[in-house]
Amino acid sequence: MSDQIVLTAKTAPDAVDETPPSAKLVLTVLAHEGSLTQSRLAEETMLPARTVRYALQQLEEHDLVDSQISFADARQHVYSLNDDRFAKADARE
């Protein structure tokens, strides 16, 4: 199996259940594509930027994603899955 994290009901933290559908979509895209900026997430999910912003806020509140300042453009953040949070979920299996 590849190193990609597969989000399923069995491996995803319980906090995922508490997020809106848009947040689940953003989480799935991050799992498949890796680290992305908010604008890139909007393109990939085909959601409005405001919806992506809200989804990311929800995911950050539940500690499901990490953000770092982009090296390419310091005005943007790059979002990725919180590997520690998902590693704990995988260890529960």
Rank of each mutant, 00 (worst) to 15 (best):
R40A: 08
Q38G: 07
I69V: 12
L59E: 14
Y79S: 00
S2V: 10
D83P: 04
S22E: 14
I5Q: 12
T28C: 14
R53Q: 06
P21M: 10
I5T: 13
Q58V: 08
D73I: 00
L41N: 00
T51M: 11
V26E: 07
D17T: 14
R85M: 03
T37H: 00
H62D: 02
I69T: 07
L41S: 02
T8L: 08
V16C: 11
S22Y: 13
P20A: 08
Q68K: 15
A74I: 00
S35P: 15
Q4F: 15
R75Y: 08
H62P: 04
K10T: 09
L47T: 01
L47K: 07
L30I: 01
A55M: 11
P13S: 00
T8P: 14
V65W: 08
T51F: 06
V52C: 01
H32N: 13
Q57G: 11
A12F: 05
I5H: 14
L41F: 00
L56P: 05
L27W: 05
S80W: 02
L30E: 10
L56V: 03
D90I: 15
T11D: 05
E43S: 03
K10D: 04
E44A: 14
I5L: 13
T28N: 15
G34I: 07
A49W: 07
L27G: 01
S22T: 12
S67L: 09
P21E: 01
S67T: 12
N82M: 06
T37R: 09
D14G: 09
K10I: 09
V52W: 03
I5E: 05
P48H: 08
S39P: 05
A9T: 13
V29A: 02
E44N: 08
K24T: 02
G34V: 08
N82V: 07
S22A: 14
D3W: 01
E61P: 07
A91C: 04
S70R: 06
T8V: 01
S2P: 13
H62G: 02
T11F: 15
L30Q: 01
D17Q: 15
Q58H: 14
L25I: 02
V16R: 13
T8K: 03
